[in-house]
Design a binder for these strands. Structure first.
Lengths: 194, 194
DNA sequence: CGTCTATTTGAATGTACTCAAAAGCGGTGG
DNA sequence: CCACCGCTTTTGAGTACATTCAAATAGACG
């Protein structure tokens, strides 16, 4: 089985891995196959796994006191996904991660990842970039939420990721944008008029 | 001049530093004094400094296309503040950091920080926890923005930080909550009735 | 085909916004 | 010490955007 994870890491850190470096990393990686609707992380339960999406789609979300769910992020091929809070601390996960279709993942245990980071500085570096990007994106999302109305946020989103609508149901996109499915439907209707 | 930065780091990593470890770190730290309204990081300009707030108050914000500013975070005594994006990458800062009053900071250059991290694993660990917490808080803020109305977000904020109103102007709190000053004023008026 | 789920549409409601003006507050200089 | 100025906060009236609740339509899958 051939993975494209090596290229992904090399692209992120902007340098190549030696075969030895990659092998040492790859031996601690485990292949995981999940079906649609299966949950790989469950809010409230500990999760010491970091996932790389080989193929398929997932989403992470929280459920609020009124039982409404809020999408935190989508995970597509070539993305990393985890509850980093639980992964990095020793606390229960703060959100749930669920497959939207049959999905193939590579899973890395936190202890193995720590070891690899210590042994191979490039992985430490890689991990920093991973969190850094996630953090910056998260801050940008807050700013966009405050500075743009839902219509503009939607346009920006499909501009940045035009295939999103083909890949995830519309009501999840609404949830990601922080609005109701009905509102997104109306936004799209108005948008088509122009 | 005595700093409380040592205690802060030890608390975060939940173990003590040896005198040697702390000394090695403290020698690369520089004391910075800024006046009210002075900017220590400017959006669009590179910034390779990480700041620890000894005394005083700052806020970080972005200015959108319509010229409106959006508060990203406040920095009080014992907080760390920086444009981590610019600090960790080699790109211009994505926001501005400005003192709200006369403020005393400790500044660490990125290169020194890297070196200290490499030499003293506890600092690497500390830094990870720092970003991790920032990232998790950022995600939680998104979820709260989507799941709670402005009134509840305000109540949660002053419950968590009751002295906030005494420390920063109300219009900045409004900006942090993602609403207009007029709206926060009305929210507070309604709140007093109950 | 029928069932289940997702999306669209409608009408009424609510929350926050805009624009405008008034009131409050704090600091400075006469 | 008080009057004035600039900035923050409050208040008012009208508006915009998104929500709620309900129902109709469309799509997907067995």
């Amino acid at each position: 089985m051939e993975s494209n994870i090596r290229k992904h890491i090399e692209t992120k850190i902007n340098e190549s891995l030696t075969n030895d470096e990659f092998e040492r990393f790859f031996t601690v990686v485990e292949l995981v196959e999940v079906k649609k609707k299966q949950q790989i992380v469950v809010e409230g339960q500990h999760s010491k796994l970091l996932f790389f999406v080989e193929k398929g789609t997932l989403h992470s979300f929280v459920t609020d006191e009124q039982g409404k769910t809020h999408t935190i992020q989508f995970g597509f091929e070539g993305h990393w996904i985890a509850d980093l809070y639980s992964f990095l601390s020793d606390r229960p996960a703060i959100f749930t991660i669920e497959a939207l279709e049959a999905t193939t993942l590579l899973a890395i245990k936190q202890t193995d990842f720590e070891r690899v980071c210590r042994q191979i500085p490039k992985f430490e570096h890689f991990f920093r970039i991973l969190i850094q990007n996630a953090y910056v994106n998260s801050q940008q999302r807050i700013v966009k939420t405050f500075s743009e109305d839902a219509g503009n946020r939607y346009l920006a989103l499909i501009k940045q990721q035009p295939d999103l609508l083909q890949r995830v149901p519309q009501y999840l996109i609404a949830s990601y944008l922080g609005i109701k499915p009905e509102s997104l439907s109306r936004i799209r209707k108005n948008y088509l008029k122009k």
